[in-house]
Design a binder for these strands. Structure first.
Lengths: 360, 360
DNA sequence: CCCTCGAAGTAACGCGCGTTAGTAGTAGCA
DNA sequence: TGCTACTACTAACGCGCGTTACTTCGAGGG
């Protein structure tokens, strides 16, 4: 027993591989204890440190260029100040905006957002292997909460292990409805689009629809019908055409609608395209027929895909999906959750604002 | 002396706030020492652990759902396995692709990429306050290396503190030339675009130029001239028009070029647009004049901005900026650097591949 | 039989920090 | 003088882990 103790104390100390200035260095430099440094740097309320010592410590910090070690702090304090977000990062440009919103909000809250990629979605849902690994990696970093974002509004299946920390879904929802989620208010978006067209004097409106089953289409179309109903109008089924969610799909759908009225009589004076890519195709169809936007036919889009909407000629009036807001709200919700505070609603809906440009 | 020791040992132990299974738990469950667990989990070469103990330990890991604590590991091993990347995340869609490339490569190397936002660039360069803070935050996380990415090819000024760890610049370079950088090979990109047009039989080629002073314009135009020279041709100054790097700018520039030849005689049969947004505007100008793409006028772009190039009608043939490759190469370079290995070149150039679509 | 040597493990230290339970010193008051 | 109260600190522990320097035990050799 004594032997081993002695051996231990005789052992030559491991050579310290100093990669940075530590609190101990600061303490030595300032001639105080490490504890004092810790107290000053963490701005402890009821720690009594004289003003003089305090400044001496802060000067030492400056002089040595001390930089706290976030990992060590996390280990000691048992909180990491990290959130994690899982998303398909490059699939759609939308994910970026969600991340941006979340990132900025996290930054404001002095927290760090760890971004983990989950590979592209395929027909069967997300690439589950990659996703699980991503969540796992984030949990290894001891994130305090998880954000789970989809690039288009849909139901998702979240990896089991996400249940170990507070989790918030962004732009998606889980089928079981167990996790809190944040989604765009598609219905209100549909309303505002139609209301804008009504206000501009249009009463005969064509709709270029997405796949009718996806949440976006359901909501937007419902809002559309509501707004028309309030104006005493109805959606003419002949004017609703579904297509692929691409420019080509939009082109074809627009052709179909326009060519129903070769003489021009009965032709809609406005087109509500359920996304901007389709609006892009619709532009071509309209122009090809020698019609002018918005004089002959007004066009309104959805999604506000900047690169399209802002560069089409004329620039496209469209309804924006509030990605940044959803990202920010996600972080705020997570903050409430991790603080043990109640959240306002299990499913929070965020407004889709109308962006006026020149196509109406 | 004895007193204080006694007091310390009499002190009631702090209540452990257990937030997770630790190695100690695994060790207890498997009936071995914590060291043994560590050896097994880190796959130590020359540690002699019997196969039987080994499996017992792994079973315990499974049974308890043990998950290593990355922060503690980093603290003990003095290496974080983290890289940091500083970039303006949302300003341009390009940053995303760089991040994606870097992210994927880092993931392969079992490293984590911390993404720190730096606010938007303004005329005077990047928002320095935000940037310094971003770098500072990353260093606090003890990243082992830094990536610094710009959304368009240019000279940048990197925060001082970035010098404390290996740093690689992506899609930019520092004026002093001190830091290794990775940039697109603009010149080769210019060449390949022109070569494609020559091959299609065009010899009279118009160029819609960017601001002539930026690196992208300089390089691309040089490549363009080279390719023409090799074919015994020259760039007609009358056919080179600069404009704003927008669709409107491209539209105006294209109008200017086309309207110089109202009769059609002498008019270029192809347009090389130095970015896709300008190509988008050029499309409008061409179509307005009743000309067909590519039959009457071929168009080739640059940047491969998916949302534009893939949705224009006809789809735009363009030269791609290799953002993902640059991001990946950045991480690889960083890996070499942190491993103390030499890197192939101080400034690495990455090829800009031609993407054939239907506008040539 | 003793000695050496490798296999199989373990005790203990330190990474940088937050935190708790102390101590030393002084002022105030009865 | 003795006691409390307060200010201004500090010693020591533990967070979860990697790592080094041991120990123990059985097999093999002389």
């Amino acid at each position: 027993m004594a032997n081993s103790t002695q051996a231990a104390s005789e052992r030559k100390p491991t050579v310290p591989v100093h990669r940075g200035v530590t609190m101990a260095d600061v303490a030595k430099h300032a001639g105080v204890s490490r504890t004092a440094v810790s107290f000053v740097l963490s701005n402890r309320e009821n720690a009594s440190i004289s003003e003089e010592t305090r400044t001496r410590i802060l000067e030492a910090v400056q002089a040595l260029g001390y930089r706290p070690n976030a990992g060590a702090r996390a280990l000691a304090s048992q909180r990491s100040d990290w959130y994690g977000i899982v998303t398909e990062i490059v699939t759609a440009p939308f994910a970026v905006d969600i991340i941006k919103g979340a990132q900025d909000q996290a930054w404001l809250d002095r927290r760090f957002l760890l971004i983990a990629p989950s590979d592209q979605a395929d027909a069967t849902g997300l690439n589950q292997g990659m996703e699980d690994a991503a969540v796992e990696k984030l949990l290894e970093q001891r994130v305090e909460g998880l954000l789970y974002a989809a690039t288009y509004h849909r139901a998702v299946h979240v990896p089991e292990s996400a249940n170990e920390v507070p989790t918030v879904l962004i732009n998606c929802f889980d089928a079981d409805g167990k996790l809190p989620s944040i989604v765009p208010d598609e219905r209100a978006g549909g309303r505002v689009a139609i209301e804008r067209l009504l206000q501009a004097g249009h009463s005969r409106i064509g709709v270029i629809n997405l796949d009718p089953d996806i949440p976006a289409a359901v909501g937007r179309l419902a809002g559309c019908r509501e707004a028309l109903a309030e104006a005493g109008l109805e959606l003419d089924p002949a004017l609703v055409v579904s297509g692929h969610a691409t420019a080509d799909g939009g082109y074809e759908a627009a052709c179909e609608i326009l060519d129903k009225y070769p003489s021009g009589a009965g032709r809609p004076t406005a087109l509500f395209c359920l996304n901007d890519r389709m609006a892009m195709g619709a532009y071509d169809a309209i122009k090809e027929r020698g019609l002018a936007i918005p004089q002959d036919i007004a066009v309104i889009g959805f999604d506000n895909q900047e690169l399209i909407a802002a560069y089409l000629r004329p620039k496209l009036t469209t309804v924006a999906l509030p990605f940044e807001e959803m990202g920010a709200l996600g972080v705020q919700t997570l903050a409430s959750l991790t603080a043990g505070q109640p959240i306002t609603a299990h499913q929070q809906m965020v407004d889709c604002p109308l962006l006026e440009r020149y196509s109406v």
